[in-house]
Design a protein around this nucleic acid. Structure first.
Lengths: 352, 352
DNA sequence: CTGTTAGCGCATTCAC
DNA sequence: GTGAATGCGCTAACAG
């Protein structure tokens, strides 16, 4: 009975005798101390003699005591969990964001609540509400609705927008410089002599999509070319739709000589369509993507793309939101990470 | 003042006046009702007159009241969140599991707590502990340590093992039939005349890895071939290591004519090495994988593989754990989903 | 149908 | 150094 296991012994129904979990009161009784002393001994906050501390800890261990974070949070009026709202876990990019966020949260001593909003603003709001009810310490969100972050901030939840940013006051953001990255990708194509460059993009109205669109236009204009909106196809976050759009592009009388697919799913769709059409990349058509994904270096030729470090983005967002906690009035801060144009084999000089 | 906004008004410091959030007491006061009546009106549990209900709801809305799930859980001694522990969110397969789990949890009215254990048993235990402290209603885990599920069950947390199963009493499991799937993949290769078939696998000692290994052996034996453990390479969950292992395989005096890579990362590593070596698939070498991933249908030829529906697996796991809640004594149940051998172009008759 | 009372598990004054 | 008392926000008896 004197031995100390390194974990709560699992054998008997010790966790409170069928159904009831051990509470701090049980521990106190077992250790022959008061609840408050026990609390101090366990949390390390406040004075307690070494012997008592020892007795208490042993008792806790042998009872399989696990503190109740809900009760603690209720009492302390503080929380140690962070809500992370991502658009689509099935997409590598978002999965990596979540992985980075989760990792950093753990490093900082927080637990991650994750929700996949399936790119639906309704789901997004529902998840945010659930987080708020759970009294998370902060939220990281890749917003699909413009209103979500404001809603959170109005409820005094420290919030950071990740990947997309609607720029509301009080809401920090973490993203790459989409304008410049997009501009660089387009400029690369222009430099290779391409004149008809199609842009495949999810949408062109808000934040990230908007900036990539503007970067594209800027690069064209800088080269004295006239941007033509007929070359811009907004096909959402869907590889299948992107394939369809690409096929339509290729059927044109004067098809583009290069395609810039502004996210990984669109690049995937474009790649499939281009191959089905029997075109050779980059001889017949140049392709450049956005985001990195395993397949981009597995196919032949490898796909040139704008690489953003999704893990680092997720980490930065959590760091930022944790920094924000308790500093509600600090001015909005935009964290901009680098994105790198990674040239591989899928771009070449324009034909003819 | 009579209008009802469809959301809590964001404009003023209504959420409790700088710092203090509105509580049910505030709502009660504003509505001129008692706390219990207010509680009933808000939760829909118990009797309350329509007019009072209305008044309360209006008051709640205008105060931006959001119930505190922690306090409610404390009182009700129940929780509405589910913990999901996955090995590696960066891996499509696990990301899909998480996506499916998250989706189903939401459908069933639960919030998902997600943790990425980074395939480390230490992280896994820490995350499980955090979940327990948060008093989750149940846990879904892709266990890396054999002890984790037992630990959870000993703490009376309904638990289901996903993808891997250590088969402990009281722990349900959800997975595909790895033995049969692996056997089928290997048999396919054997049927094509291959005699030297290498198995690239994470490990061969436990559960999933073990069964895939056994399925492989079984198929060889059924064909009268003698399994040779020199053809079995355990290289963990790491594409780079798999590449290295594949290179070593190919350098042999009598290299294999086919490789069965028993998970998506290993298949990726093998593919890279095979291509670097200048080999043509499937003419020089047949390759078959496990798990599906976007790249497998993007490369040329597409990679034949055992497809498991990861989303469905995640969904099933959550359904199962929810079913378990409140039924601690029900016998252990194994849920086995189908896995399908998807033949694409990466396998062909053995050379010579 | 509504209000009063009590207590979930914990941390924190404040005496002793 | 330790313990008794109090209350976080909420819901569930139980009376009225």
């Amino acid at each position: 009975m004197a031995t100390e296991a390194s974990e709560p012994e699992p054998t008997s129904g010790r966790t409170g005798g069928r159904g009831r979990r051990a509470t701090i009161t049980d521990v106190a009784a077992a250790a022959g101390a008061s609840r408050s002393t026990t609390s101090r001994a366990l949390s390390g906050q406040g004075y307690v003699s070494p012997e008592v501390r020892d007795r208490v800890q042993r008792a806790a261990r042998s009872l399989g005591y696990v503190p109740d974070a809900l009760a603690r949070g209720l009492k302390r009026r503080s929380s140690t969990s962070i809500g992370v709202l991502v658009s689509d876990l099935s997409n590598v990019f978002y999965a990596q964001l979540a992985a980075g966020a989760s990792r950093r949260a753990k490093e900082l001593g927080f637990t991650t609540l994750l929700a996949d909003t399936q790119v639906q603003s309704k789901e997004e709001l529902a998840a945010a509400q659930a987080f708020l009810e759970l009294r998370v310490a902060g939220v990281v969100v890749t917003p699909v609705s413009a209103r979500i972050s404001g809603w959170l901030v109005d409820h005094e939840i420290p919030t950071v927008e990740l990947d997309r940013s609607f720029g509301r006051a009080g809401v920090d953001s973490v993203a790459v410089d989409n304008f410049r990255a997009s501009e660089a990708a387009t400029a690369h194509l222009v430099g290779l002599g391409h004149r008809r460059i199609a842009l495949l993009i999810d949408e062109t109205d808000w934040t990230t999509g908007r900036r990539r669109y503007e970067g594209y236009r800027s690069a064209l204009q800088a080269a004295g070319l006239k941007p033509n909106d007929a070359d811009v196809v907004a096909s959402g976050w869907d590889a299948t739709a992107a394939s369809e759009a690409t096929r339509a592009l290729l059927r044109r009388r004067r098809p583009p000589t290069a395609i810039f697919a502004a996210n990984n799913l669109l690049a995937e769709g474009a790649w499939r369509a281009v191959h089905e059409a029997g075109l050779r990349v980059p001889r017949d058509l140049s392709l450049i993507g956005f985001d990195d994904a395993p397949w981009m270096t597995l196919v032949q030729p490898a796909v040139s793309t704008v690489v953003q470090n999704a893990i680092a983005l997720g980490e930065a967002a959590v760091s930022r939101v944790v920094h924000r906690i308790g500093r509600p009035t600090e001015p909005r801060q935009e964290v901009v990470l680098g994105a790198e144009l990674q040239l591989r084999g899928s771009t070449a000089r324009a034909p003819r």
